[in-house]
Amino acid sequence: MQRIKALISCICFFMASGAAAGAGLAADTLRINGSGSCLDLMKPLIQAYEKINRDVRVEMEPPLGSSGAVKALVAGSLDLAVNGRPLRPEEAAKGAHQQPYGRTPLAIVAGNGCPVTNITTRELEAIYNGTTTRWRNGEIIRLVLRPREDIDTRIMRSLSPGMDGAVSAALARPGMIVAVTDTDAYQTIVKTPGSLGAVGLTSVLVNRLPLVTLTLNGVRPLPRAVASGAYPLAKEIVFVTRPAPPPAVRKFLDFVHSPQGRAIAEKAGVLVAARHAPHE
């Protein structure tokens, strides 16, 4: 009889253990990826979200970039993409749905020790087209560029007609530094003497990057300056889902649009847009 009781006790124990393990496996897993500057914004949002949702586990691998994240999302390898640009028509045609979230300034930044705190459009044009090659203290200016089709490159081109041509000239010069991803860009600017480049403000603030953030034509790269139109360079932040996002995604998007989520994003340098329509 004692052996039977012991056997029953063991069976009950393993059943309870299995139920507990099953409950653990049932916890929501949220797989997020996207562009580097957008994932930097996700860091404080995810940290706050997990504090109030202990049953959620968020997986965020190194950035795939906007295009790579959309491909992974459509293939079912991601639950949510956070992109630095709107969807392309061919991406939407494959079933990706976008929800614009806001904009963050694309800041003109330089390495520590930069002798200036302001730069003008005309000065940027001269640096990019190669006419100006040194800072006022004599140090060589080392531009950190982005690939030709990158959204940051297109934003820089939009600053002025002269800047459009200057960016083309810079990309055509041999020996230029070209950083493929957002993370590569700011890490390269940090470690390169005399560096100059452009980085999303979210990355600067969230990572506390040791960089000099320059004013552009006397205007600081702040969300309110983007809102007023005084600061002309800004990156989009767009959430991308599949047509019927799982409950874990819908719940997370509700959080990022909540007053707490908006406050976190604004502190990270984002001009958060109004949520025009709820997710489907």
Rank of each mutant, 00 (worst) to 15 (best):
E125W: 02
L216C: 03
G194D: 10
R142E: 04
V144M: 03
T132F: 05
P221L: 04
G200H: 07
T153V: 00
I119Y: 04
D184H: 14
N129D: 14
P223S: 01
E123R: 12
G130Y: 02
V180T: 15
I177R: 10
I177G: 05
T213A: 07
D150I: 02
D184L: 12
N217C: 02
R220K: 14
G200S: 07
R122C: 08
L201S: 04
V206G: 00
G197L: 10
I119A: 04
T181Q: 11
W135M: 10
R157F: 09
T132P: 06
P174W: 11
S203I: 01
T181E: 14
V226W: 00
S160A: 13
D164R: 15
M156F: 12
A169L: 13
V190F: 08
P174S: 11
P221K: 02
T121F: 07
T153H: 00
A185L: 13
T188N: 11
T133L: 13
R220M: 11
V190H: 07
V180P: 08
I189E: 07
N207P: 01
T215Q: 09
A169C: 13
Y186R: 11
T121C: 07
S195C: 07
I151W: 13
S160L: 10
P161N: 08
A225D: 05
L209M: 04
T213C: 09
R208I: 07
T121R: 12
M163S: 13
L205R: 05
V178P: 12
G162D: 11
N129P: 06
N118G: 06
K191H: 15
I189M: 08
P147Q: 06
S228M: 00
I151R: 10
T153S: 04
R154F: 09
V180R: 15
N118A: 11
A126Y: 09
N118R: 11
E139K: 10
R154E: 13
L145C: 04
V144H: 01
T181Y: 12
G165I: 13
P221T: 02
Y128P: 02
A169T: 14
G138E: 05
I189N: 08
V219W: 01
N137P: 03
L222E: 06
L216T: 00
P221M: 01
D152E: 14
V178F: 15
I177W: 07
L211G: 01
A227Q: 05
T215D: 07
G200R: 00
L159P: 04
V178Y: 14
I189D: 06
V204P: 06
R142D: 03
G175P: 12
L211P: 00
I127N: 03
E123Q: 14
R154L: 11
V204K: 06
R220I: 04
D150F: 00
T121A: 08
I127Q: 03
